[in-house]
Design a protein around this nucleic acid. Sequence first.
DNA 1: ATCAAGATTACCT
DNA 2: GGTAATCTTGATA
Length: 203
Amino acid sequence: MTSNKSKKLNREFYIRNLLAVAKDLLGKIIVRNTGHEVISGKIVELEAYHGEYDQASHAFKGKTKRNEVMFEEGGRMYVYFTYGTHFCANVVVGKKEKGLAVLIRGVEPLEGIDLMSINRYGRKSISEKEKSNLTSGPGKFCKGFGISRIHNGTDLTGNEIFILDRPNLRSKEIGVSKRIGITRSVDLQWRFFIKDNPFISRK
DNA sequence: ATCAAGATTACCT
DNA sequence: GGTAATCTTGATA
């Protein structure tokens, strides 16, 4: 079982430099334990957001009711609702009050694929195309994993949602680009992904 | 109280 | 490549 092979990332992992944590999270295994079933997948794409000098960050204008989890100590989930339809999940990074986060944008499904299929399409049996589309985007990942507003603030050192350690990738395996879907601070090259992985949201 | 924008996705031509 | 769907938040009055 994938979930038992390696160790859960601890608090110290998350309380580090934003871009270092972002790159190190690539290739790690994110797990959701519903209490009945386990869903897991490899993180293959993400983006970093910095509350102090990144105008695209939800934390840029300071703490509000919506983004308050971003100002907690690293190692929690910040989940927000957008476009009236989708949830997006972030890993909060760094010390308290910093406002740093990493948006999870792409995951390669490992365990619980039947449940993911039901969450996304309402049925277990899905086409090859639907399989490749299960969790290849921030909203799709949340839908597949059943993550919604009730998971905002979830402690990733707990037992419901957590991330398992894996060896860091070599920098050669990591692609870097501008972030997607934003209108401010557009030139920061803060999107990271595993090159050639089919579950990244865009080529 | 009102309103525009939004860290997206699915479906259309 | 274009755009409707759908609703919460934060800004402004």
